[in-house]
Simulated assay, not measured.
Amino acid sequence: MISNNKTMRLKIFQKRLLELEIKAAVLILSRDIFYYTGTAQPCILVVTQNDYFLIVRRALDFVLNETWIDNSKILKNGSFKEILLKLIELGINKGHLGLELDVIPAELFLKIMSIFSGFKPVNISEEIMIQRMKKDQEEIDLIRAACNIMKAGQQRVLEVLSEGMTELELAAEVEYAHRKAGHEGILSMRNFDFYISRGPLSSGENLFKVSGFSNTITGIGLSPAVPAGPSLRKIKSGDIIVVDIPTCYQGYHSDETRTYVLGKACAEVTDLFKALRDISDNVMAYLRDGIKCSELFGIACSCARRLGVEDYFLGLAPRKGNFIGHGIGLDANEPPILFEKSDFVLRSNFTITIEIHLTHPEHGAVKLEDMVLIKENGCEILSVTEREMFLV
């Protein structure tokens, strides 16, 4: 049985601080604070090897209603200088200080270190993300709910897709269906300066145009200001349409891609998707606790080679992709990333995507992305939308 004791999250984190000889960690990112405390209100979470406290900057009434931590650990207001004084009271006045160095603004970092001058900063984000990879039962249930919301959007494509509508109009229909089904309307990404629309949607010749955001199907967007996502291109009969618009439910994401054809698919596109489905199925047949990311990538490559689609696998040269999936949870893209050269070992209760596309230089691109829960001796597909290419 997967534990649901959320208070254990801080205890596990404290154990790692002790093992790494980190005296204290100061967390400011809302996703991390939410993971450990249950609130995303403006707060600072301070964790030592033996204690913790939550500084509430605003909305104390919300925090008291939302959090599962002991109310005696909640402090109203407080500055970084006051945090330092609190640590000194606990006998901590020097040593390693854990900070989320991958996301903390430079100006704030300099301010913190001018106050904590006796400490040496270390990046604690990797430890947080490793802990967040393994999901408890409640997290898995929330991700399942996000997957159910996802299906409402995919179903909407079948209902409204028609010749002459723009990519933007189709995306709006999908997003509206998601929202009505309970999608919170955000797409959280732990990346500096990462901006995109609500998610990629691309069709026709746009499938060959890959923006610099990622080596996958991105769409071209509405302008150079946001060069990814749906465009004003009008969809035509015979077009392939790839829909990859994530959902979020109570903070947890689903990321799923389905491929559609308006009208009849030519034999080459049908065969291309069949090969894609075979590659995805092959990868999932080997997916289980203990397998390395690089091993899965190698399995996908070998299958593509055997099926004669190696040149189309993950796009066309020189813009071929280098991953076949990623972790997912409180962020839409989380570690682990299923890179070609990553020896990271996947474990039970990780939620990941298996995300693969094939691009033919003449006939376009097809993509299949599924939500998957890793188990001890296999995996469970969490996506509820049929894993087919839909003809509309």
Rank of each mutant, 00 (worst) to 15 (best):
S3P: 04
N4V: 14
T7G: 14
I12L: 14
L20R: 04
E21S: 08
K23G: 07
L27K: 00
I28D: 05
S30K: 04
R31F: 05
V46N: 03
T48L: 04
I55Y: 07
V56C: 10
R58D: 06
L64I: 15
N65Q: 08
D70M: 05
K81N: 07
K81C: 05
L84Y: 00
E89H: 09
N93R: 14
D102T: 11
I104Q: 06
E107I: 14
L108N: 06
M113G: 01
I115T: 05
S117K: 08
N123Q: 12
A146H: 01
A146R: 01
I149K: 01
G153P: 09
R156Y: 05
M165I: 02
T166A: 10
E169D: 13
E173R: 06
V174A: 05
Y176P: 05
H183R: 05
G185D: 02
I186R: 00
I186Y: 02
S188H: 14
S188Q: 09
M189K: 13
R190E: 13
R190H: 10
R190K: 08
N191V: 08
S197R: 03
P200S: 10
E205T: 15
K209T: 05
K209Q: 09
G212N: 14
T218F: 03
S223Q: 11
I235Y: 01
D239N: 02
I241Q: 10
V243E: 02
G251Q: 01
Y252T: 05
E256G: 01
E268R: 15
S294Q: 13
E295K: 15
L296Q: 01
R306D: 15
E310G: 07
G315F: 12
A317V: 14
F323K: 03
H326L: 10
D331Y: 14
D331G: 12
V345N: 04
N349S: 11
N349H: 06
L358V: 03
T359F: 08
T359Y: 08
T359P: 00
G364K: 00
M371F: 02
L373E: 09
E376R: 06
N377H: 09
G378D: 06
E380C: 12
